[in-house]
């Protein structure tokens, strides 16, 4: 059986699931700096599916690709600790302000630079936007098939892949041709934890922007152990039409943001005393809201 080349897409996101009180500034905007930056949860589920294929077919490789600021190298290391073979960081100011279409274009250009692939796999959506658009858009840009909402990869051979999809109220088994892009839902198995051997191996891995060119000791280390180098590409490293990148390449624009003012109501506040609750229930029954 021939090995598979798998690209796992990942995004570093602010942990919007654990937004504390200090996460909001007084002007009503989000204080990103206090939110921890994490590996987007569904991308981790996707990474696990990639690693499962790799385990089954020796010689297969899993490359994690992320686009983001230099700090996003953190999730590449996280992925390496959990078993990925290689990480690629796509970072440049030219990508700033990208909407989903400009993001998927940049990712597709980076994927073309990677030497071939059989499967691209990523989470269904990222928790900071919930759009679920980038996966299918990357597939369209690369003109390959897509299978979204995947929960389990059931079978794979050199030409086809069979996948179980989780729909709103049911499941569907589909078969598609390789190469293909697959998006994975949070109902898929969780990603394996960090592996101590992988952690030892990749502990000192860094992207070019993270290391100082003056640190000779580290440069020597990288010479001995080239796998410690996290590949870093900027806009000059990929073949692309710059007018399609970043804010300028994004068809959607934010016209304005408003703080929300919900219609506040005249509120009656009460305690959990029997008479309070009883009188409220009585009112609801009498006016036929319930009963």
């Amino acid at each position: 059986m021939k090995p598979f080349k798998i690209i796992a897409l990942a995004k570093q996101v602010p942990d919007t699931r654990n937004v504390g009180k200090d996460a909001m500034k007084e002007d009503g905007t989000v204080n990103r700096s206090v939110l921890p930056a994490i590996f987007n949860p569904e991308d981790l589920h996707a990474l696990e599916q990639a690693l499962l294929i790799r385990d089954k077919f020796p010689g297969s490789t899993v490359t994690i690709l992320t686009m983001g600021p230099v700090r996003a190298s953190e999730i590449l290391r996280e992925g390496l600790f959990r078993g990925a073979d290689e990480g690629i960081l796509l970072t440049d100011r030219a990508f700033a302000g990208s909407d989903t279409l400009a993001t998927s274009y940049a990712l597709a250009c980076a994927i073309r630079k990677i030497n071939g692939f059989d499967i691209i796999i990523c989470g269904r959506q990222a928790i900071d936007g919930d759009t679920a658009q980038v996966g299918p858009q990357v597939a369209e840009k690369l003109n390959i098939s897509q299978i979204t909402y995947a929960e389990e990869i059931l079978a794979i051979d050199k030409k086809t892949i069979r996948v179980k999809r989780r729909l709103e109220r049911g499941i569907e088994t589909v078969e598609g041709p390789l190469p293909i892009l697959i998006t994975v839902t949070g109902t898929a198995p969780r990603c394996r934890p960090r592996n101590s051997r992988q952690m030892m191996k990749f502990k000192h891995s860094k992207s070019a922007s993270e290391r100082s060119e003056k640190d000779e000791e580290y440069l020597n280390l990288i010479n001995d152990r080239p796998y410690l180098n996290i590949t870093e590409w900027n806009v000059n490293d990929i073949e692309c039409d710059r007018s399609l990148l970043g804010l300028g390449g994004s068809p959607t624009k934010v016209k304005k943001v408003d703080s929300i003012s919900f219609q506040t109501k005249e509120t009656k506040t009460m305690n959990d005393k029997d008479e309070d609750i009883n009188s409220l229930m009585k009112e609801l029954i009498v006016n036929h809201t319930i009963g």
Binding site: V19, A23, V30, G129, T252, V254, D258, I260
Partner: peptide
Amino acid sequence: YQIRPAFGGNIIATIINPE
């Protein structure tokens, strides 16, 4: 005008596609 709550949730964004 495509209006939706945006990141973090206590803002509402109005999105447009002018071109």
